[in-house]
Design a protein around this nucleic acid. Structure first.
Lengths: 108, 108
DNA sequence: AACGATGCATCGTATATCTATGCATCGCAC
DNA sequence: GTGCGATGCATAGATATACGATGCATCGTT
């Protein structure tokens, strides 16, 4: 990430789920999309994203499907599930709570 | 912390510096104060705080002074320095930038 | 006198992210 | 048509940060 990477921790899964809630995407596409919608601030690396996607898949928040003709380039599309949307809602609420509390402390 | 601890990463030093910018404090006091001003949400642990204080001291963002009569309980008071205030200002700006970008992504 | 709160500090562990790397395909410039 | 950068998936190792556990000492209250 361009910003202090430590700040990102704990927010990455929320960001990824948010993008997937709009449309199915494959890994590389998620990285590019995130960079665009964050005005170039969030440059997520593959080594960060794929473990997250695999974990989300493991917990059934997303499902993956290989797409592509035989012998052509294969892409793994990820789609959010009903559980995933519930998780996202909870994570958004958590983020809002955290953010407002930090602001309260910083403003005194 | 009560909130997802991963969210805290990268913000802890900023929170500590913010408190120290108001008045000198010793470690235990910082933990209690932070808990109060965050409405009980941020329960920082000793294992978290002391390494942060030592790192801030190392980088000369704070200076420490032992206070207490001979034979009585000693307290180590931490005071923010000029460099510390500059660091805090930068960290606040970084937080604001990060926060607004996350919100932009979450809101689409 | 005992016990919980205060007060400082470190160690081992878990987790998250990054860098580096590997491999394959696609598109474009030369 | 060949090479090279971009695309696309994935893992391994290194690093950073926070936590839980622990240790030790003092203070206040019962």
């Amino acid at each position: 990430m361009t910003v202090n990477k430590e700040l990102m921790k704990g927010s990455t899964a929320t960001l990824v789920l948010t993008l997937l809630a709009r449309k199915e995407m494959y890994g590389y596409q998620i990285i590019k999309e995130l960079e665009v919608v964050s005005s170039g601030l969030f440059e997520m690396k593959e080594g960060t994203l794929y473990p997250i996607l695999h974990a989300l898949e493991q917990s059934e928040a997303v499902v993956a499907t290989w797409v592509g003709e035989e012998g052509t380039r294969q892409r793994k599309y990820y789609a959010i599930t009903k559980q995933g949307r519930a998780l996202l809602k909870a994570k958004k609420e958590e983020w809002r709570n955290f953010k407002e509390t930090v602001d309260k402390v910083l403003q005194g």
